[in-house]
Amino acid sequence: MSATPAPSTPPTPPAQHVMRPGWFTNNVLNRTVAWLSRRGISMSGSRVLAVRGRKSGEWRRTPVNPLPHGGAVYLVSARGHVQWTRNMRVAGGGELFHGKRGRGFTAVEVPEKERPEILRAYLKKWKWEVGTFFKGVRPDSTDEEFLAAAPRHPVFRITYTD
């Protein structure tokens, strides 16, 4: 008599990397950058991202640093798989605001194997602001180190619709 194997349960996916902002970042820095951006004052090209919530359908806003690189524009999540990245995957696009002017866009997530060059360019430009979120990866890190970091940092290629 052969034993019937127990039904297998699908493996639990590994927890996605998230570095939640602290009180000061949420209540002071992000609000200050968003306030400045709404008035047309940008810190090194920062913008306010508006994307529809995946559950509520309401517009959610957060400061981001769009990266022009290699003829395309990218949004990189230094803090990992945060709410705006989850919303972006569902919405497939949003708007970037500088002052009162918003530009609509569509977004496609960049595969992990294509991220190292983009992450390197992102750190070259914004290491002073986001370097701490990359856990030891620096602009001069090896391709292998960037490839190892790629799953922790979603990247979206955006295409403006207007």
Rank of each mutant, 00 (worst) to 15 (best):
P111V: 10
R38G: 03
V76C: 04
P14A: 12
R115D: 01
T85V: 13
E109Q: 15
N65G: 00
R39I: 08
P63M: 12
A50F: 00
R86P: 00
R101V: 14
V76P: 00
G57F: 06
P66L: 07
V28R: 08
G22K: 12
G57L: 12
G93P: 00
S77C: 08
E112N: 08
K113D: 13
V82G: 00
E95F: 05
W84R: 03
G92Q: 08
G99L: 07
G93Y: 02
R47M: 10
V90Y: 01
V28N: 03
Q83E: 15
T132K: 15
P14S: 10
K135N: 09
R61K: 04
I41P: 02
T9N: 03
K100D: 14
F97Q: 12
H17Q: 13
P7T: 08
V51Y: 12
G136L: 14
T85F: 01
K127R: 04
P7M: 05
P66R: 03
V82T: 15
M43F: 12
R79D: 09
V76L: 11
R79L: 09
W128F: 03
F97W: 08
G57V: 11
W126Q: 09
W126S: 04
R31Y: 03
G53H: 10
N27F: 08
A15H: 02
P11A: 14
G104F: 07
K113A: 13
K135V: 08
F24C: 01
G136K: 10
N26I: 03
G93E: 15
T12C: 07
T4S: 12
R52H: 13
V48D: 14
G99C: 09
A107W: 01
L36C: 14
S42M: 10
R52S: 02
P5V: 04
E114H: 09
P5W: 06
G80Q: 08
H98T: 13
H17C: 03
R101G: 01
G94S: 09
S44G: 02
A72I: 07
G45R: 12
A91N: 14
L75G: 05
S8G: 06
A50H: 04
V110P: 02
R120W: 10
P68V: 11
R103A: 11
Y122T: 12
M43D: 14
V110D: 05
E129R: 12
R60G: 04
G22M: 10
S56L: 06
S8V: 09
R60V: 09
K124H: 09
P11N: 05
A91G: 01
F105S: 11
V28Q: 11
A78E: 08
R31G: 10
W126F: 13
R47W: 05
V82H: 04
E109K: 11
V33S: 01
P10T: 06
R20T: 10
Q16T: 11
S37L: 07
H17F: 14
K127P: 00
P111Y: 03
L119I: 13
I41G: 08
A3N: 06
G70F: 03
Q83D: 15
F133H: 13
R115L: 04
L96S: 13
R86T: 02
V130K: 01
S77Y: 07
A107R: 02
M19C: 07
R47T: 06
